[in-house]
Each structure stands twice: as structure tokens, then as C-alpha cells.
Amino acid sequence: MKWSEICIHTTNEAIEPISNILHETGASGVVIEDPLDLDKERENTFGEIFELSADEYPEEGVYIKAYLPVNSFLGETIDEVKQAVNNLMLYDIDLGRNQITLSEIKEEEWATAWKKYYKPVKISKQITITPTWENYKPVATDEIIIELDPGMAFGTGTHPTTVLSIQALEQYLKSDDVVLDVGCGSGVLSIASAKLGAKHVYAYDLDDIAVKSTKLNTKLNKVDNKIITKQSNLLDHVDMEVDVIVSNILAEIIVRFVSDAWKNLKFGGLFITSGIIQAKKQMVKDELQQHGFQVIEINEMEDWVSIIAKKI
């Protein structure tokens, strides 16, 4: 079978929504080529993630690549992708150059092309994320390993927004806490919560692919007995009292359910938000404070922001 590689030249801000669009159109895996990766310093203890060549990266912005089968519907699929990406401008998402190119690729090349970008990486004091095909051995007695199959949905779990979320969970989550993960994607935050000691985790996502991916990854990590995964539009019709709500999605979406987050949190509970670009930080902060939350910490990584707020 022949495959077509679709490459979208865009911005960091647009990575998550465009990746979602590509998965919804049937892409089996998404590759992000971000020139910021060329300058990252990583501890030798954990090895390099992959060999980097500057020639494969844009001078500005990012490349998002995905692989689609070459068939009679390809042209129609590409048109749908272009339209869906352009519609993101309605949400004030900066698309940058927004250039889409296509190239043909052989099946054997497609099957391994994106895997070279994904190796085990330690993203916090305790947690290391590794792909299922890597035989990784812990280097510390308290190290927590999360295995992911990124071919199913929404990235590898090493994006700054995910790292910020997991670092916040590691710092604030207490043993036997009940957690709500809104927009669970691949389930990485739910899995991290369970492995950090949460009693129960409720993982919600509107996308059916994300729900299936979360269920797969929770079983893979042997925490499916702690995690209840359901399809849900944010917190619509959700009524419970939890200790922590975590959500790594777009700032524009976060502000839409702040009031529902307040209703579903115990007093003293925490709302951990991520997926926020610098330009939208104040908007999210203001919305949280208007609903009674106390902002207790703001963390930043590259161009991304995480806000931790407390119900008081």
C-alpha cells in the first residue's frame, strides 16, 4: 500500500488542535518537528531522545506530519483537513504560515518513520514516559514508568503542556485523592494520577478515538481498575465531588467550564490547567478568579503556561 505524508507548517499554539484534526481523519500517528528541540539540553543519564538534523526542521514554527493511505478519497480528506485547520482561526488560534504539502511514502518507511522521534524521556522527578516498543529499565527505585502507544491518539506525552501538568500532579496530588481528567487524550494524565496514588480517576473526552486510546493505555499500564473512562463534552451533566481536576486543553476551552469545575471540586480542591499560551494566560487567570478560585501557582515552559488554582 502507498501512503501520503501530509506536512502542515504551523505554530506551537496549533499543535494540539491540528493533531486532533489529523487523528479524526484517520492518521495513524503524528510527528512534530519543532526547531526548539534542537536547543534542548537533556541529562545524559536518560540518553538522547533521537538523533537530530537541523535540515529536517523549519527555521520558524513547526512541522506537523501525519500519514494517510493513498486511495480515491485522499483528495477529499485533504480538503477536509484544510477546512478544519482554517476553521481554527475562528478560535483566535495563530496558524502561522499554514502551509500544507503532500509527498508519497512507502509503507515500510511509514511504519517506522515516526518511531525514530520517540524514545524514553524523564519528564519529572519521578515519571518517565516510554513507548511500548522500548525495553526501558528504571534507573531509580522510586521511578514511575508510563508506557504509551502514541499511534492511537494525541502525541507522545512529552509536550511541554503535558510535562507541566504531570509536574503539577506530582507536586500536589495526595494519596487517595479522586481526580477528574477533562480532555484525557491518550490518557497520560489519568495514568500519571493513578500511579501517583489517586484512589479513583475519571477520564473524560468528547472524542471517541481519545476514549478508546485512554482505555488501551490504562490497560497497558495496569491501572484500568482505578480509571473510569467515558465520552463527555467537558463536564456537561457531571455531578460529583473530587479533590483534583486536571485539564490540558486550549485556553479557550478551559474558560468555558470553569464554573463546572468549581461545582465538581471539594473546598480546598485543586484545578490544574495547562495548554495555555502566554498570550492567553491572563484570560484564564481572570476567569478562574472571577469564579472564586485562588491562583496558587503559575508555571511556564517554553511558550506554554500551567495555572494551579484552589477552591476556597
Rank of each mutant, 00 (worst) to 15 (best):
I123K: 03
I312A: 05
S274E: 11
M240I: 11
R256Q: 14
Q231M: 12
D39P: 02
L216G: 00
L220K: 01
I78F: 04
V70N: 06
D37P: 00
S28F: 02
V139A: 11
T10L: 14
V31N: 01
S72N: 13
K263C: 05
I227F: 07
D176G: 00
K311F: 08
Y57G: 01
M283W: 10
E252Y: 12
I93D: 14
A66M: 00
T158S: 09
Q99S: 08
F257G: 03
K2V: 04
G157V: 09
E297A: 08
K195D: 07
A251R: 05
Y202C: 06
H291Y: 14
E109Q: 09
V62Y: 08
S103H: 07
K116P: 01
E143V: 01
D142L: 09
E300Q: 15
K280D: 15
M152S: 07
T214H: 11
F257T: 01
S306R: 12
I127A: 03
I18K: 01
S186F: 11
G155T: 09
A279I: 09
L206F: 14
I93V: 11
V62D: 10
K116A: 04
P138D: 15
H23M: 06
G155I: 09
T132L: 15
M152W: 13
T77Q: 05
Y63E: 05
T158V: 12
E252L: 14
L68T: 00
N87M: 09
A14E: 12
V70S: 06
I8Y: 02
K195H: 03
S306F: 11
K280C: 08
E241M: 09
A309T: 03
I227R: 02
D236M: 08
